[in-house]
Amino acid sequence: MFFKTATLFQLKETVDFDKLEAALAEFPLKEVDSQDEFSFGSMPLVRNSETWSLRSNDCLLMRFGKEEKNLPSSVVREALEEKVAEIELIEGRKVGRKEKADIKDELIFTMRPTAYAKRSDVWMHIDNKAGFIAIYSTSANMIEQAFKHLQTMLGSFPMTPLQAQVSPSATMTHWLLMNDVPASLETGATCDIQEPQTMDKAKIAFTNLEPLSEDVTRHLQQGMNVKSLALRWTDKINFVLHDDLTIRKVKFDDAIKEAAFNDSQGGGLSDMDATFALASLTTRELFTSLCAWFEIATAEQEQAA
């Protein structure tokens, strides 16, 4: 998978791939029940197939899904306003806050079974060699549900957010102020900066402008910090790195895509296998670089200590 966005987490221990693969089909995504808000579960990598995962380079690719009742708040609000107006007209009294809340709950209970069910998915891969999991999303809700599902399947899933020993924002700010960007990186054409101290945290978004230019560095010299920065890494990936270390707007180089195409035997799963083989190795290298740039202790370093 050539992902477009990713959130990385470190593993505290190696994951048993055999156990996890066996559990994927045992906890599939099911249709959401009439009164449930959503359901969450494993999904085959390709629709109507029995392939639940792929392995390559000591990495495991998976796909989870969420089905939820699409009950727009505007529809609920309109129904609530109509019901309240009806009560006030017929009974000649004001409807209080608590009664409104009770009516709203009752309306949701009544309307949810007939609401449209919408499906969404989230892809991820676990890298046992490098000790991280990459979830191809920045949605806090989808990430939370993915970890809950992993815990359900395995009993536990020990992980932790990337623990940078130096501030990513301060580090990226230093790169631009001192023109000291790591040799493997080139700055792109976008940069977001913000005030670190003020209550409103004023922000400035620069687009189609070299981040090392005076227009940007002048604001940094006045105390603003980098919030996100477009980067190109080792001629392999373009991406935007945020100060929480999420990676967005990822674009793999055409040479990598061409290599994956040449390695494929043709067909959906074959194409996916070839793509994942190259993407997982590239992501592993990028993870190693992130650890070096922001002084993140890898699993191997922690074990050695």
Rank of each mutant, 00 (worst) to 15 (best):
T171A: 08
T110D: 09
F147L: 10
A164L: 06
F132I: 12
L154Y: 10
H125C: 06
Q163T: 09
M142C: 06
R112T: 05
G131Q: 09
R97A: 13
D121V: 02
G92M: 09
K104F: 02
Q151C: 15
N128A: 06
T160G: 04
L162T: 07
F109N: 11
E106W: 01
I135M: 11
D105I: 00
G92R: 03
D121A: 04
Y116D: 05
M159H: 15
K83M: 06
R112V: 02
I126W: 00
R112K: 08
A146G: 11
I126Y: 02
T138M: 09
Q151P: 08
E81P: 10
I133R: 07
T110G: 01
N141L: 14
P168G: 06
S169W: 08
S167F: 07
R112M: 11
E91K: 14
F109S: 08
L89I: 04
D121M: 02
T110P: 00
S139E: 10
T160F: 10
T152N: 12
D127I: 03
H125L: 05
I87C: 07
L107C: 02
E91W: 11
W123G: 00
A85E: 12
V166L: 13
S167L: 06
F157W: 03
A164M: 05
G96C: 09
T138Q: 15
L80V: 11
E99K: 06
I133D: 09
V166M: 07
M111E: 01
T114P: 02
D121I: 00
P168N: 03
L107N: 02
I143F: 08
E99Q: 08
D102P: 00
N128K: 05
I143Q: 15
N128D: 10
